[in-house]
Design a protein around this nucleic acid. Structure first.
Lengths: 265, 265
DNA sequence: CGGGGCGTTGACTGAGATCAATTATGGTGG
DNA sequence: CCACCATAATTGATCTCAGTCAACGCCCCG
């Protein structure tokens, strides 16, 4: 099942018609291996990319071979949704694990945002949530020490994985190496290693081979000053309350125009 | 003149009709003094805020009274455009200087984004440019030392000020204190002071009272690894190229539907 | 079973934080 | 026009978190 549908259902209830549209957005799909770039800085893609499975990151290459990871993305995320309006990529996107990538032509993006107002609104909302995550990322790496930064990032990965059904019981398949973590939080790989050991010795986490266990979620949240609010994970409520009354009216009017409405809304 | 119009003209050529709409988006306006909050974290505003004059910042309050500044905004920017879709604010917005703020009801935002497709597209594009600036901000504070961070931020402030007509001849009215600068780049105020002195002694800048002179722009750009591409300052070209052919067709079709088209497009 | 990436450890170094004073500066009221 | 006060800038001394360099062990995969 297309993970995009599950995600959009969170943002707005879907009609059968709309679900059908989302089920067929991809013109094709392919696999990439860990470490491979999906889109490169400076390119002017003619397609967007939908993550079907796996984990990817956006990053900017910096002088000296280093890179700064800007955000993580999980199944159901449109990796470069902004590209159909902005043109040239201002960053690269790379697979952290083996991933399955769906290709969505820009023309399809245009058709959806213009032809299906409620889907369009959901896509725009999603981009804004994405921006909210960037803001939180800044706060995380701006004024916090290594311990707090890593604790926060672990919380984010766990919560977002859980939201897409990839984690439960305080347990996740861990998608990144210590080097990746270093690029994400802006500290050296060596210090990442030491900080992880500290988190282990404090009884907050257990991380070995490719599995992370969170042993003390409350403690970890406290250590990272983590508050999941910025992820807007329950946005069907939020989105509705956010709409001024006449918007809600409009949405409902639009919905009722759809031929078959199976009463999902 | 409404600085929003100038800005939107950069993103897309405007018809007289569209200009008129933009000229009357504000239901009212008011002044705020430096240091005052315009919108607070957690609020659910029923209006957006347009910056008419002055400089503001978004920020997140952190434990211990510190704050992390997330971005700067200049005249013509809609400060909290995301609020009409996301609902609760995930950060605060505060005036760095005395500012004039226009109030745009969410209902107006909805009318524009739904009733004027080209304006809507320009507004969405603008939000994406905003997100691009957040990504650059992450790269700036993530993997760079104090010297580079501050050099980069100075470049951004100069270039963006110039783009809205507030700077020329390598000279800007400087909007922030050293404490603000510290909150922006994530280093201590004391170290900001020392770093500024270094930049002065290197002959890159002169900064006193409230005026910044850039003495060696090339050197400053090099020091901050600054490339203005991420600001998408010439987006009328970019936006057009970014559009798939049928989008352009659509835009043109839409434009021609507008009663009076003075051939601006 | 061999090799290469990844994780781990130790020793040393350094950029930047913190603490604590002191000196401009600009806005205000007398 | 000047005294005054709060805010901002500056300076010095000390300390610490995190970076760097370098070596070694481990584990996974071919």
């Amino acid at each position: 099942m297309n993970p995009l549908i599950r995600k959009m259902q969170h943002l707005v209830p879907l009609t059968a018609d709309e679900e059908e549209v989302l089920a067929s957005v991809c013109s094709e799909s392919h696999d990439v291996t860990a470490g491979q770039d999906v889109v490169r800085d400076g390119e002017r893609p003619r397609n967007c990319h939908l993550l079907m499975s796996g984990t990817v990151c956006r990053y900017k290459a910096l002088d000296g071979g280093r890179r700064q990871i800007l955000s993580l993305q999980f199944p159901g995320d449109i990796l470069d949704a902004q590209s159909f309006l902005l043109g040239a990529m201002d960053h690269s996107i790379s697979a952290l694990t083996r991933c399955r990538i769906g290709v969505i032509p820009h023309t399809t993006m245009v058709e959806i945002t213009e032809g299906y107002p409620r889907l369009g609104r959901a896509i725009w909302t999603d981009m804004l949530v994405d921006a909210a995550a960037l803001r939180q990322w800044i706060a995380n790496i701006g004024h916090r020490n290594a311990h707090g930064r890593i604790a926060h990032l672990i919380c984010e990965i766990y919560v977002r994985s859980e939201a897409v059904g990839l984690a439960e019981d305080r347990q996740v398949e861990w998608p990144m190496t210590q080097g990746d973590l270093a690029d994400a939080v802006g500290i050296s790989p060596v210090h990442v290693n030491r900080t992880l050991q500290q988190l282990r010795s404090e009884g907050l986490i257990a991380l070995k081979s490719k599995t992370l266990h969170i042993l003390d979620f409350e403690g970890l949240k406290r250590a990272g000053e983590f508050d999941p609010e910025y992820l807007h994970l329950a946005p069907s409520r939020v989105a509705k309350e956010a709409m001024a009354p006449d918007v809600v009216q409009h949405v409902e009017a639009t919905a009722s125009r759809v031929p078959q409405d199976f009463g999902i809304a």
